[in-house]
Nucleic acid binder design. Structure first.
Lengths: 225, 225
DNA sequence: AAAGTTTTTAAGACTTTTTTCAGCCGTAGC
DNA sequence: GCTACGGCTGAAAAAAGTCTTAAAAACTTT
């Protein structure tokens, strides 16, 4: 179970790292926002613990960038300020929980436990939107009684949409997320896969469709009944 | 939030512009020092991103002239050279920050964020004016309960108005902004698109209208209730 | 190594956006 | 009231962007 800890106060970072490691977690600790993003994108974490006050790029920025990129790792925000405003900002930007400093060991462990258990190996996570449900584990997409198996690329692509169901995603963004930064995939690759996905959505008779807005990108759209 | 991007490498300029626009900034890109000065003086920007190596007038010159003129917009200098000497020259002439090429997206956004936030404004995802609201993300224009999808050009054009809702914009300016500097668009192109936009505003029953002032240009106007 | 699957490439059909054009309308100046 | 110029708008033509399909290439599995 991997945790990314982003905290610039070195003493606190060291202490938290130690506590978590004692519980059997594998912990990477970084101390600024930019590194946080590098790490978060470079490897799979099951939880990110994110301080708000950070050099280079603050916690909210990091959060926003990661979510915008389609990463849905649980994120636990940490802050010295106990202001409610911060809490709201954090949760709105897609944080999963919020812990104010100072906190004690038990409390931290409780929160970490709650967030990591949530995606425990046994529980199947389902990404849902309208009548669709995508099993993150098996890449099976269901709607009503029917279901189909998605291929890996179809799965990656559809996840981008299901993570931010109201966003319009450019082909560029989709290439980045589904093919990776240094791929040579072209717009046509995206088009082909969108076509594959549409065929499956049609087969499932879902009310959700993928709509194209020329030059801008794709977005989910729900057909009226 | 308006940004002026001064960069002569067209590919880089295009890429950066796109990145910033995706974040919801409004970006004008110019490719030489003289135009940079024209633009900087002609409209309000909250940030200028300035390449050092430029045709006609180099970045330092531009910087010096603008500062001498009393412009105190934050300026982010960009350069291929990583020489410390440049950095010192830049900061001494009044640059606010300094980024060496090549840089990655995150780093650029972090710096831009830092410099634009400094003046307390938050990035707008929705451009609002009177009863209108335009989503910068999806190019959807709404008013009351209704909304319509704008095409790319309609979107570019309407943004010009919503960014400076009190200005009268000449056709020339609009061509520059929506079609780009080296396009062959005629006045009639603008007229046609204004007509498209008006049709959509009418459909939305907005109180905002686009008014023409002969020989001068177009301006937003709010109908009395 | 064969069979099956997934991914990439490519080409033509199709759709939407953009441009062009022509005729009409309205205001300003006579 | 007439003329001239700038502006408006609908429709057709052109261009750009997207969709779909089929076949080739790259992997996987057996």
């Amino acid at each position: 179970m991997n945790i990314l800890l982003v905290e610039d106060e070195l003493n606190l970072a060291r202490a938290v790292k130690k506590i978590l490691e004692q519980q059997g977690y594998y912990v990477d600790a970084v101390h600024d926002g930019l590194s946080a993003i590098d790490y978060a994108k470079g490897m799979e974490y099951q939880l990110i613990i994110l301080d708000v006050m950070l050099p280079k790029l603050d916690g909210f920025e990091v959060l926003r960038i990661l979510r915008k990129d389609g990463l849905n790792v649980p994120i636990l925000m940490l802050t010295a300020r106990s202001a409610v405003a911060d809490k709201v900002t954090g949760l709105n930007s897609g944080a999963d929980d919020y812990l104010t400093k100072p906190f004690d060991t038990e409390e931290l462990l409780a929160r970490v436990g709650a967030l990591t258990r949530r995606r425990g190996e046994v529980i199947v996570e389902e990404l849902k939107y309208e009548d669709l449900s995508l099993s993150v584990q098996s890449a099976v997409l269901s709607c009503g009684g029917e279901s189909v198996q998605l291929s890996h690329k179809e799965f990656e692509l559809l996840k981008c949409f299901l993570y931010n169901p109201t966003m319009t995603l450019t082909k560029e963004t989709l290439i980045l997320r589904a093919w990776g930064a240094d791929s040579e995939a072209t717009d046509n690759n995206v088009e082909v896969y969108i076509s594959f996905l549409r065929k499956k959505l049609r087969y499932l008779r879902s009310r959700v469709a993928i709509r194209n807005i020329q030059k801008l990108g794709y977005r989910l759209e729900v057909e009226p009944c």
